[in-house]
Each structure stands twice: as C-alpha cells, then as structure tokens.
Design a protein around this nucleic acid. Structure first.
Lengths: 142, 142
DNA sequence: GTCGCAAATGCAAGTCGTTGCAGTTGCAGC
DNA sequence: GCTGCAACTGCAACGACTTGCATTTGCGAC
C-alpha cells in the first residue's frame, strides 16, 4: 500500500530509522480511523504481524507522539488512545455518563490560547484536548 | 486533630461510611498541601498507617473524586495527582520543558464552558484542568 | 559491497493501578 | 445493647505499561 511508503518518508524526515515494525505500527494507527487504544493496536498487530513485541509498540507510539506524528489522549478509561495527526486539529468532548466521544472544532479553544499567551506568556499546546462532562442526551435522561 | 472530625462529617454528609482508613487517607490529602500523587500518598501512609492497603487508597480516592471531595488531575507524568477541593476553583499550566506548574484562575475557561453549553448542549466539567505548553522563561531560553 | 555505530528490537522482569471475592465493619432500626 | 445488611477492606491475581540488557539492524561513510 502507498501508505507504507508515505509513512517511511515521514519517519525518515523525522530522523528516525525506518524499520518494518515502525512502518506497520504507524500504518495500523493511520488506518484505524479515529482513535485506537494501545492494547487494541497490539491485539490487531498480533494477527497481522505476530512478531512485533508489545514494548516495541509502546516505544514506537511514544517516540511518534514526541515527534508530533500521532496524538496521545487520555480518554478517561485509564488507557491512552492514539490518533494519527491529520490536517484538522480538533478536541474531544467525552461524556462521563455514557462514554460517548464527540469531536470539537479547534476554534473554541483558540481564544483561550491567545489569552494565555498575552497575559501569562504561556505558549499553550492545545493541539488535542479531552474535555470531560455530561452530554446533552444524558442530561435530558437524568 | 480537628481535621479528622471535619473529614468524618464531610464523608457522612456525602453518604459514605466513616472508616478510619478513609479518614486517614483524606486527611493526608488535605495536609499534603497542593498536589500529591497516589503513589506518594501510599508511601506516606505506609509510615503513618502501615495497615492500609494500596487498593483501599485508590478506591477511596476514586470515590472521593466522584463525590467532588478531591480533584484528580493528570499532570502528564502518567500518574494522577490528587488535591483536596478548596474554595477556589483553578487550573494548572504545566511546562513541558521545565515541568513547572502554575495556577490559573478559573475565569479563563468559564467562557469556553458557557459556549459549549450553548452551542453543543454539553455540560463541560472544567473544574480542574491541566494545560500543557511552554512557559515564558523556557521560551526566552530557547 | 562491507564496516561500524547508534538506534531499534525482543525478551524477561519489574512497577503501577485495577478487579474479584471472601471476610469485616459501620450504622440504622429495633 | 443486639441484629442485619450494605458498604468497605485486604488479599491475591490480573492486565497495562515500563525498563534493563543483550542482540540485531538500518544506514551513512568508505
């Protein structure tokens, strides 16, 4: 698949060695759609590439997150979820009651980031944010 | 200490049973000052009350967080930090470079919460938030 | 093509936090 | 003061994730 070549280029540009393990892991993240937990990723890789160790997956994801290739978000389940960094920066609204995850446009928090920089000189990294609360339908049920 | 009686009252009002373990754990959180990680809390309790099991500490903290008695915040270290809920709601600015933690007034994010409720019907729980980024002094150093 | 080295990998062992379960305990009702 | 029960506790086992270390491998230099 073309994705593998592309992933290899991204890796090389980031100054990382291009190993089949890394390419497979990152391709899996790209193809997984929205979010994928580390454990589910390991499970899926176990079927397609059984020789890849869990520690390799964790290390690859951590270094990819450092380089900004993937986002790592704590979705409140205790497990981190990973997502390939696409063009559109967005956040997530996570319902504490039903666990539903909704995407949220970046614009909501842009104002906060600007304000923080102007008033505190703090360059906030609001690239990918998880906001907990109670969604509309759970509120009406209650 | 008076704190123990007070903690017991808070627990009873919250509909929880008042056990010595819970009182000790929550007192420790109250006295620890700003933030304390679960593992450090367990370590401190080990010296003062060696008979309290780690699982009891985690369960007590989780139920106290549910009841809004303590805040649970992911400070990016992988470990959750706990803080006794005082009168002032506030957030934290955490520098990715030097690890410094600064408190941030609640007002910055109040606007976001209002906007989310009006536009998405989502009741955001912004009681205690950790925002990552780069602080002023680290920016000037770079 | 092959050499050398830093980076990446796989394995095993360890830590951290959670969960199931049987026994214990706080406390409301009598 | 006694009783019953739900909530709480401690233990042990488990899953998730990390770390140390010896081995392997990608890749730039020759």
């Amino acid at each position: 698949m073309a994705c593998e070549n592309e992933t290899a280029i991204v890796l090389r540009e980031a100054g990382q060695k291009v190993t089949p393990q890394r390419v497979h892991i990152l391709c899996e993240v790209r193809h997984s759609g929205v979010h994928i937990t580390a454990s589910r990723l390991i499970e899926e890789l176990r079927t397609s590439h059984p020789f890849i160790d869990a520690s390799t997956v964790y290390r690859t994801l951590a270094s990819a997150a450092d380089l900004g290739l993937v986002y790592e978000t704590d979705m409140g389940s205790g497990e981190s979820e990973f997502e390939w960094v696409g063009k559109d920066r967005h956040h997530h609204l996570i319902c504490r009651t039903c666990g539903d995850v909704t995407s949220l446009d970046n614009s909501y928090l842009d104002g906060v980031a600007t304000l923080l920089y102007e008033e505190a000189g703090f360059q906030a990294d609001l690239g990918h944010f998880a906001i907990f609360g109670v969604c509309k339908s759970c509120q009406t049920k209650a």
